[in-house]
Amino acid sequence: MADALIEVKNLSFRYAQHDSMTLDHLSLSVEKGSWTTIVGRNGSGKSTLIKLLTGLLENKSQDAISLFGRVLSEDTVDKIRLHIGLVLQNPDNQFVGPTVADDVAFGLENLDLSRGHMEQRVKEALENVGMLDFYDWEPARLSGGQKQRVALAGVLALHSDLIILDEATSMIDPIGRQSLLALVKQLQNRFGMTILSVTHDIEETFLADQILVMDHGGVALQGRPSQILIEDQALSGFGIELPLSRTVQRDLLALSIALPSGYLSEEELIDQLWQLYSKK
């Protein structure tokens, strides 16, 4: 792909503690300016992949990973990292400073910004995630969802080209989660940022341009949401829930209600139902 921002070819990885491979000849590609969502069972290797992509784990498959058109290696990793905003699965691993503001500012230290500019970015990011009131709080006193919001602010403040989110909103209330994900979508649309997110929430995949289903250390399915979300049996086999619109569509078809059988988003399904409703 000409415009691939992330390109992974035949990546394999084994933890020293294990006999078998955690990632096994995994290949994927992520287009610049797109949103890719990774789903898959617990232990399928999602976080391991993220850590390899960001250099947190050392990759022994040479040349397997390229980012921004450069091969990820010991020599390039520091430079490449400057362009990536990463939220890890456990927000506690990311807190380093005595206050919330210090934490958000931490990632900015490498960016050569003036004090004033930095403070402005921190405030803006905290405002965007609804946490400005907690500016000088101790991170340890935050609730679970508040911690995740602050971790997300740390990434938003970076204005990076690539944002990687590993279950970054798993403990945020549904209304808050939706608005934060919409905010991320806006960054993609407005500034062409590339998004790679890992989630167990099937609704998050609706925002994506590409879904990757991981299973046993490999990519089991890969495609546009409308291609993947219709693979009922395969998805169930990989432990993934079907979107509500899909199960409702199936239930109604089984009751002989005249609906198309191809993929329908929730909006499209409701539209179809509305047509049936007004035709009666």
Binding site: G40, R41, N42, Q89, E167, S170, M171, H200, I202, S236, G239, I240, E241
Partner: peptide
């Protein structure tokens, strides 16, 4: 169930 895959959850 936060962090559990849907079938495990």
């Amino acid at each position: 169930t936060a962090g559990l895959d849907p079938s495990t959850a």
